[in-house]
Design a protein around this nucleic acid. Structure first.
Lengths: 342, 342
DNA sequence: TATTAACACGAAACCGTTTTCGTGATACGC
DNA sequence: GCGTATCACGAAAACGGTTTCGTGTTAATA
């Protein structure tokens, strides 16, 4: 078992001081070419790598960023994470990840766990429970301590910090317009139970589009579904009760479920009824018919979030801090597939 | 901006030494009840939390575990990761994750990045390229340094370390038997291009089942698909060339794709043809018909891997090291859905 | 030849903990 | 009243680096 080699070892072996070794490895001007060469050769030979922990302690920065997300087995978060990880790694940062599981308590615990020197900053998306309780003291605390924080997707207006969001309202508006342009008159909205701010914004866009086309918003056309297995029954009931010729869904699963029920009821897609869902995941690509979706560009979102965070971290170090927080908006796009006309 | 408080601050404020504060907070017997109370009260008031980095440096353990996986936007890895994260967090460990993107170089770089004191051990699944090149010097190096390492799913026989695998061969055998029991005679295998060891084992189980039923293995019935978009054409060609009444697929996507092509060709599922896929992801649950699958129990796999690793890490500390490495096998199960009879 | 600047390096402080060991004060036994 | 055990605490080293500042040696300058 080969032990990791330290500066001290090199110093002893080469009969110089630790400082000399340190400087030599950094190619400092202070050290003569001779010794530099000797030290560097020796270091390479024994594969010396500085101990990250020691460097972190000294420099007061870890080159780790903490990511706290509600769920990892979810396509959207997964892609965002991918973007974060990609950019962070390029910049020499590691990503420590914690999953809040949509729970407020876990979110708090995870943040405390990370916020004891382990990380230089946070990227997070609020858990469902946090949004419901509307309690963000743990976030405020972090910001107050001067720890950079970037919120994405599930953000809150009550906190001043950097944010990355999707143009939810506009893209929902556009999606609805697209359905209207197809000639649809009875457009339903399939959405989630507890109103997330994103769902709400999507609903706003949907309603605005209808209003601009002088169509009254019919609450009976808004289908609120739980995350259970009773969805199919509820959807059947929905189809029983109202007449529908298009459905805009705030996620992929609801759209797929609705399509299946529609097919079972003998409706032709997209002749009789059109579907658009949010999230460009596997389901929409492999469903039959394939589903037209709003692509949220998670990777891009993650990259932007990571860039914002790292910029903030590094500017704190260099001292040229910019006190104004920014909110960047990722432009979603609609991917046309078989579940809509044209 | 409130700065984080340290032992030194408390010591100065209370006019005692740093050692006293440290001991008092640890409820040491050495310290009088009086001072302990004072120190603890002060610490609580100012919300003192020890600096993880300093503790790590001193204790030579970080309570971080490094996870290197080929892909995060993949259901199976995602669930395994979930299991790792769950168990690790329960034990007070953080998870640092790096994605190798199926690339050998990235795998090596990521491991080097983490292996400079940042973590107490590794959990990983080999990248495709690493398996092809069959170069595992970076792993050997880690093991040699005494860093605990647990491999899962995509493992190698060339390395002595803890491992968690699936009973790939047996479950593929059972799945094939299941198809045979349905009366299927021409069972195809849909598999990946570059032979992973898992794909290979699944193929073995498939072949063994056929042989035991005195059915000759027909190489024309083995459909090797790329990860591109030309799959559909290839599958059509496959159906053109050979007669098939069942398909066992090493993943979910291939199975779904084959089902779609079969449907387009007017085949009834499961009357005319049956399907079984590996991976119990979203696709199989929401496809039409729903897909019978081999559930790999990723979460369980992750939990086991995390437990093995943490046990190893902690035993290294306590000194009662167990030099024999173990390989644990997770028992996959078949989930019956609509794509098979009965 | 004396002064000084440049050079090459080392000593030591520091980051925030943990932990060993030493020590002054008190209390106890004889 | 003296020796000793106990108590309660502090000094200091250690973890593995970075960085400031000081210093001895040599070479250049007047």
């Amino acid at each position: 078992m080969k032990q990791k080699i330290t500066l001290k070892h090199i110093a002893r072996e080469l009969e110089v001081s630790i400082s000399t070794v340190s400087k030599a490895l950094k190619n400092s001007e202070e050290i003569s070419a001779d010794t530099k060469e000797k030290v560097q050769a020796f270091a390479k030979l024994y594969n010396y790598k500085p101990n990250n922990i020691a460097v972190s302690l000294k420099n007061k920065r870890t080159k780790n960023i903490g990511v706290v997300i509600p769920d990892i087995v979810h396509h959207f978060f997964t892609t965002v994470f991918r973007g974060i990880e990609k950019y962070a790694n390029e910049q020499g940062y590691n990503v420590i990840i914690c999953v809040s599981d949509e729970s407020f308590d876990k979110e708090v615990i995870n943040m405390e766990m990370l916020n004891n020197g382990s990380i230089d900053g946070f990227i997070m998306s609020l858990s469902a429970e946090t949004q419901q309780k509307d309690d963000i003291t743990h976030l405020k605390q972090v910001v107050e301590q001067g720890i950079p924080l970037v919120l994405f997707d599930r953000v809150t207006d009550d906190l001043d910090c950097d944010k990355v969001i999707l143009n939810d309202k506009e893209i929902a508006y556009q999606a609805t317009i697209k359905l209207l342009d197809e000639g649809r008159k009875r457009i339903a909205l399939a959405t989630t139970e507890s109103y997330f701010n994103v769902s709400e914004k999507r609903a706003e866009g949907y309603k605005q589009a209808l209003k601009e086309h002088n169509i009254e918003v019919d609450d009976n056309l808004i289908l609120v579904l739980p995350y259970d297995d009773i969805q199919e029954k509820m959807i059947h009931k929905f189809f029983d009760e109202v007449e529908v010729d298009a459905i805009l869904s705030v996620n992929e699963i609801f759209a797929i479920q609705c399509m299946e029920v529609a097919k079972k009821r003998g409706l032709k897609i997209p002749e009789d009824i059109s579907f658009i869902g949010f999230t460009d995941g596997l389901l929409s690509r492999y469903s039959n018919p394939t589903l037209t979706v709003v692509a949220q560009h998670g990777v891009q979102m993650g990259e932007i979030a990571a860039k914002m965070l790292i910029d903030r971290v590094e500017s704190e170090i260099s001292g040229d801090e910019d006190e104004t927080y920014r909110t960047e908006t990722v432009q979603a796009t609609i991917i046309d597939r078989e579940s809509t006309k044209n």
